[in-house]
Computed example of a mutant assay.
Amino acid sequence: MSKTTGLLQRIQDGETVIVAEGYIFAFERLGYLKAGPFTPEVVMDHPELVRQMYKDFVRAGSDVVQAFTYYGNRSKFKLVGREDELEKQNRLALKMAREVADETGTLMCGDLSNTWVYEPGNDEAITKTKSMFKEQVEWAVDEGADFIVGETFGHLEEAVLATKAIKEYGKGVPAVITIATHFTKTTTEGKPTTADGIEFNEALRRLVAEGADVVGFNCTRGPRSMIPILESAVEANIGAPLAALPVLYRTTIKEPSFFTLPDPWTGERAFPLDLDCLLCSRGDVVKFTQRCAQLKIPYVGLCCGNAPHYTRAMAETLGRVTEASKFSPDMSVHGMYGTDDTKINIYYTDLHKTSSSDTIKK
């Protein structure tokens, strides 16, 4: 473990901890990871790229290097015929994350995720899920994780299994557990629930009772549709620090999950390959971060769709100057929008004054 101030102490001291997630979608966009299985094979195939992405996110403002072990479980790797490489993949992802964290003075965390193996009431599936969580927790601890994340759980009970595994095999490292809305379900009063029908605030309370140190929400919901459930959790005072890590897609109150978002041009479901047309803007990230700050949510980040410029926008909204801030936008010297007359071409200045519709006609 690192000698830097730990996660829970930082939160206790009133800090906001930024955590960059989103490696799965980022590497799929780059062409190093297959959509469908979404397994982190790039760790084995191109470790130098994973190390660089760790650095890029820290440079943009992440306080944590989250080891790329999402979907790095036995079931997922068996699906792509690489189960014999599983431990090597996990340990390599963790080792690189530890090295980058030590180089940059940040924290490193291990990462568990939903398994797609768990089934309520299925003893065999539950046993397999427990086994997969156990080995990933043990690898993370061996490689020096400062804390362990368990994320994107649609079922509360699978989240509980992850919490118990971290508490039993994690040798005292904190557990950050976040739930997601894989399936759009509500109570009779219209409140959103987990896939197993537990109202969100009650689900968070149960996770705290099981020993989770930080609880909250990640994935599936974008900034706009995550805010209401965060406001509800703050008001409910669930008994532990809250985490908020939305996807970078423009979900709505009507369509709160990016699984069901329609392509605005075709009306067809955009997930998973046509989500690009629904990406959030940096301004969306700024507004989300501002609201989280108002709500005093101490653990914030971004999930699927994330990229360093989004993380930088989040960090700068919180008043930070990151290494990447050297290259933050400065439109005062832009050829069309700039204010320095000596650098602006007259033609483009006139074009800028023309309405967009007139420009299209021309």
Score class of each variant (00 low, 15 high):
Met132Phe: 08
Ile166Lys: 12
Val214Glu: 04
Ala180His: 06
Asp123Phe: 12
Tyr118Val: 01
Gly216Cys: 05
Glu143Ser: 04
Ser232Cys: 00
Val215Phe: 10
Tyr169Arg: 07
Ala159Val: 02
Lys130Glu: 13
Ala165Arg: 10
Arg206Tyr: 05
Thr178His: 08
Gln136Arg: 14
Val208Arg: 13
Ile227Gly: 00
Asn201Gly: 13
Lys171Ala: 04
Glu168Thr: 13
Thr220Gly: 00
Gln136Leu: 13
Ala209Met: 04
Thr152Tyr: 12
Thr163Asp: 05
Thr184Gln: 11
Ile198Cys: 03
Thr188Pro: 01
Pro228Glu: 05
Phe217Gly: 00
Arg221Tyr: 11
Ala140Met: 06
Arg221Gly: 02
Ala145Ser: 12
Glu202Gly: 02
Ile179Ser: 03
Gly121Lys: 10
Tyr118Asn: 01
His182Asn: 11
Glu124Arg: 15
Glu189Met: 08
Ala180Lys: 09
Ala195Ser: 09
Gly144Phe: 09
Ala180Glu: 02
Gly154Arg: 07
Ala159Glu: 05
Asp123His: 14
Thr184His: 12
Val215Ser: 03
Pro223His: 06
Ala209Glu: 15
Thr178Lys: 13
Pro174Asp: 03
Gly222His: 14
Arg205Pro: 04
Gly121Arg: 10
Ser225Leu: 00
Phe147Ile: 09
Leu207Asn: 05
Thr127Tyr: 15
Asp213Glu: 11
Gly172Cys: 01
Arg206Ser: 00
Phe217Trp: 12
Phe153Met: 00
Thr178Cys: 07
Phe200Arg: 06
Gly144Ala: 04
Thr181Ser: 10
Lys130Pro: 03
Gly211Ala: 06
His155Lys: 08
Gly190Ser: 05
Val160Asp: 01
Val117Arg: 15
Arg205Glu: 08
Glu189Trp: 11
Ile179Thr: 06
Gly150Ser: 10
Lys134Glu: 15
Thr127Val: 07
Arg221Asp: 02
Arg221Ser: 05
